[in-house]
Design a protein around this nucleic acid. Structure first.
Lengths: 144, 144
DNA sequence: TATTGTTATACTCTATAACTATA
DNA sequence: TATAGTTATAGAGTATAACAATA
């Protein structure tokens, strides 16, 4: 096993632990919000990508379809997403964020991300750039 | 709100979604291993940091103490961690990985991280460096 | 009284398997 | 037969509140 392979394994190890810890920290940031982190993530993605089928949204969020069904049922019950029929394929469904959701979303996101944004502000601009690049690399990683 | 503040908010947003998706992807990498991702993370940290109290380990992993109690009970039942008494404070407990755990850990980690390490190998060296730096920045972020 | 850890309990998140409807 | 989505069910992950033991 060469040097690069060893380094890569060590990097995978460190990144795994860091990502798990950050995601736990973010999830615990629960106060003052009415949406869970999972619900907020689905709404954020749906707003960013536009109307999607449940299957497409599940693929973006890296969960199995039944998991997304449940998230969407809760969000629909709260009036935050609306379902409509697919134009040509009767099996498929289109979901999109409602005006109610649009009105709530910025505030919810700000409250949820307050801690993280505060920490970001304390970083050097160069460090923020590094996180920005890393974020893009991770998204690309997930697509392959 | 200035430009930097806006950029920071957007970065927090992107990083949150990327981290959540990657941690879901890692968690779903469940096949062929006997340890869950949470158990493996606790063991990895315990091996890296050396003997710790349950409270210290919970703090590193960003979970509440009762959550760690449960993880440790499972690991102790499997013979992977051992408890001992604190030298001077009867309230505290010291936990450490066993020889059995040391023998298993490398294989478990390799299986768990196979997907991630494979993706890492496909990146350019410069991109790996960026992830390495980002990983360190995230760990520092969590300490503050 | 304060701190460390645990027990009791419950909710969130996510998965697999089986089913329904449509293609 | 194959695909999209849902229902049923279960297990993993984590939290809060209350308790016991020790400081």
């Amino acid at each position: 096993m060469g040097r690069t392979t060893l380094d890569t394994a060590a990097l995978a190890h460190d990144l795994r632990l860091a990502v798990m810890r950050l995601s736990r920290r973010l999830r615990s940031q629960r106060a003052d919000t009415s949406l869970t982190l999972t619900q907020l993530a689905a709404l954020s993605t749906l707003r960013a990508k536009g109307p999607l089928t449940p299957g497409e949204l599940a693929a973006y969020e890296r969960v199995q379809p039944p998991s997304m069904t449940r998230v969407l049922a809760t969000l629909e019950g709260a009036g935050l997403v609306a379902r409509s029929k697919h134009a040509t394929d009767g099996r498929q469904v289109i979901v999109q964020v409602t005006d109610t959701a649009r009105a709530l979303l910025d505030d919810e996101i700000r409250m949820r991300e307050a801690w993280l944004a505060q920490r970001m502000n304390e970083l050097k601009p160069q460090e923020r750039d590094q996180l920005r690049m890393a974020s893009a690399i991770i998204e690309r990683l997930l697509e392959s």
